Computed example of a mutant assay.
Amino acid sequence: MRFLPTRLHGAIDYLWGLALLSTPWLLGFDDVPAATWVAVVFGVGAILYSALTAYELGLLKILPMPMHLILDGIGGIVLAASPWLFGFADRVYLPHLLFGLFSVVACLITRLEPTLVNGRREPA
């Protein structure tokens, strides 16, 4: 069931990206290079493709919302598995796992089109 409006998803995207990007320093695993790089790359990547998405908070509106959600889902799976894929699970795994699972859930519950306002679609 898709109930999360795309406008709210957009706000979450930017906050999620910034939060993930900052976790190595906020949570103290910046001394684990692979864990740090994964968090930085996925955080920056999420912010960039959010800026390119054709939704209310997108800046260039190039990437269709369904493609954005596919990236969220696949990226979330890879992020959740990254501690084991890249060999740092013995040092840190929970932030990557939780951020990844959050991304997968978000891709499954977000609407594919902008919300109707007063009987009309909001402009993307």
Rank of each mutant, 00 (worst) to 15 (best):
G10D: 07
G10E: 02
G10M: 00
G10H: 02
G10N: 10
A11C: 10
A11R: 11
I12S: 01
D13S: 11
D13L: 04
Y14H: 07
Y14K: 02
Y14L: 07
L15R: 10
L15K: 05
L20F: 08
L21W: 03
L21A: 10
L21Q: 05
T23Y: 05
T23M: 14
T23R: 05
P24W: 03
W25T: 09
L27S: 11
L27R: 13
L27I: 13
G28I: 01
F29K: 14
F29R: 15
F29D: 12
F29G: 10
D30E: 15
D31W: 12
D31L: 09
D31R: 15
D31E: 14
V32G: 07
P33L: 05
P33D: 09
P33F: 01
A34T: 00
A34I: 03
A35L: 03
A35D: 08
T36G: 00
W37F: 10
A39Q: 02
V41Y: 12
V41C: 08
V41K: 07
V41L: 15
F42I: 06
F42C: 06
G43Y: 04
G43R: 02
G43E: 10
A46N: 11
A46D: 01
L48T: 09
S50P: 00
A51L: 15
L52V: 12
T53H: 01
A54M: 02
A54K: 05
Y55E: 12
L57N: 08
L59M: 13
L59H: 13
L59P: 10
L59K: 14
L60Q: 14
L60H: 13
K61D: 15
I62Y: 00
I62V: 15
L63R: 01
P64N: 10
P64K: 05
P64Y: 06
M65N: 14
P66A: 02
M67C: 02
L69Y: 02
L69R: 06
L71T: 06
G73T: 09
I74K: 05
I74A: 14
I74N: 01
I74D: 05
G75M: 09
G75Y: 06
I77H: 03
V78Q: 09
V78W: 00
V78K: 12
V78F: 07
V78R: 13
L79R: 04
L79D: 02
A80D: 06
A80T: 00
A81D: 01
A81P: 08
S82Q: 08
L85T: 09
L85P: 07
F86A: 15
F86D: 03
F86E: 07
G87A: 04
G87H: 09
G87T: 04
G87Q: 08
F88Y: 15
A89R: 10
A89I: 09
A89F: 07
R91V: 13
V92N: 05
V92C: 03
P95Y: 04
H96W: 04
H96P: 06
L97P: 08
L97V: 14
L98F: 14
F99P: 01
F99K: 00
G100D: 03
G100N: 02
G100A: 02
L101D: 06
F102Y: 11
S103E: 03
V104S: 00
V104W: 05
V105R: 10
V105N: 07
A106E: 15
I109M: 12
I109A: 12
T110G: 07
T110I: 01
E113W: 09
P114I: 08
T115W: 12
V117F: 11
V117T: 13
N118W: 14
N118R: 13
G119Y: 01
R120L: 08
R121D: 02
E122Q: 14
E122G: 04
E122Y: 00
